[in-house]
Write a protein that binds this DNA or RNA. Structure first.
Lengths: 244, 244
DNA sequence: TTATGTGAACTAATTCACAGCT
DNA sequence: AGCTGTGAATTAGTTCACATAA
């Protein structure tokens, strides 16, 4: 989770929040759900749905409707009582809240399986982001294409970042190389980092790191699976059950 | 996030929690951090560290020490006052809490870039899990090897799951195919699903789905990046800043 | 009617601060 | 003397339930 909990967090100067789009700040938990709503809204729009009620959108997003309405209320009053929400308009408002009406240039460091998966991942390249550079240390990969971009050598990292005004970096290199890549990104002004390497990066104050950890999620599943087995067969049986 | 908040949730029968390993239940937020602690502990163990204080382990995990101590206290009293925690012993206790002293057989559906990245990802194959099957619909991939396992055709899904007593499935197929794969996994008894496809899966009660969404994290980063720009340059400047 | 928007109540998570053990 | 373990206080997040507006 990100360090700051609010839009107008402790680093914001006091007293001038009144003319911001979202004066009270958007709770972090809400921010984390907005992308899910956005995806559900796109899916509705594609199916030609013009208006949606909170129950329906909530179901599509996998949350309850009270939570959805409260979440959306942080962005403003964009619904119509007795009717619901205009899908297209809500897409715009949620996009704007997330900063996706801009087009953020992104650099991906690491063009291995993970980097390739990212570049081809449905929705990674969508509205709001463009892959401006892909870097790798393997000479065999340099010069190849990925996501419409030519893979360049990682030694060009600084040139690629500064030359394209890149503020967001994606680290998709092995754990051993990740901290060094991170340090170099931060040194040339990248303040948002998405980390896929399985380690905790250390960064200076003011840099926002989010991590996607493929094995942590699996371990959380194992915890719940174990719990289910223990409930069903008693606490001694879970060992045997998993071996079966 | 998972549906149930506690180890002994509403589905557990009342009155027999006293002889469970963790009678009061482990908060979901704690469960989500245990894998991070575990990784930090392994890293310390590899460096030959025998004992660690909460401050140091907390720093390695990127949390504050009060939170770490409270988290560990849900598992039991495994520290030594005035000294710290025995690294090896704590590895065992955290592993046990997460259900990783067992060896869960896992099936990965989808052997594209993402499936391949998973199989090669540092730590995905580690203690607690073994890849028991990899499936894909592409005949060109079937018969090849991935993570030490031969890729089989997705039509064999049911046979692979039931034949190996698999309880955990990983969905690494495109969004369009994900729900169908999910339904088939659930139908043959898989109750834990890790979903990489960018959509909300619908599953019956009792099935635990976690999702890893590569683009949602990027969107959350964009939100914070936008906020920083707005704070620094005023709310009108952020548009121009990202275009630069 | 009907479905939003939101105070109020509730539940979960975090942090503080210090008693208690080694 | 030092670090854990944990009640108490605080803060964040969720859900309820209904006044409000189309």
């Amino acid at each position: 989770m990100s360090s700051s909990a609010e839009l107008s967090g402790p680093t914001a100067e006091p007293g001038n929040t009144a003319d911001r789009p979202y004066p009270q700040g958007i709770p972090e938990a809400t921010v984390a759900r907005l992308p899910i709503y956005l995806r559900a809204l796109y899916s509705l729009a594609e199916r030609g749905v013009a208006t949606v009620a909170s129950d329906e959108l909530a179901r599509a997003a996998g949350v309850n409707s009270a939570k959805l309405r409260k979440d959306l209320s942080y962005l403003g009053s964009y619904g119509i009582r007795g009717v619901g929400y205009d899908v297209e308009y809500l897409v715009y408002q949620v996009s704007r809240a997330l900063g996706l009406t801009q087009n953020w240039p992104v650099v991906i460091v690491g063009a291995g399986n993970l980097g390739r998966a990212l570049a081809n991942y449905g929705g990674f390249l969508t509205r709001g982001f463009r892959i401006e550079g892909v870097l790798d240390s393997d000479p065999a990969l340099v010069g190849g294409k990925l996501g419409g971009v030519t893979i360049r050598h990682v030694s060009e990292l600084e040139a690629v970042v500064t030359g394209n005004g890149i503020a967001i970096g994606v680290i998709a290199v092995p754990a051993g190389a990740a901290q060094a890549v991170c340090d170099r990104l931060v040194a040339v002004g990248v303040t948002s980092i998405l980390n896929f390497a399985p380690l905790v990066l250390s960064v200076p104050e003011g840099v926002d790191v989010r991590k996607v950890d493929l094995s942590i999620e699996l371990q959380i599943l194992a915890f719940h699976a174990q719990r289910r087995f223990a409930e069903r067969y008693g606490q001694a049986a879970d060992q045997a059950a998993a071996e079966a």
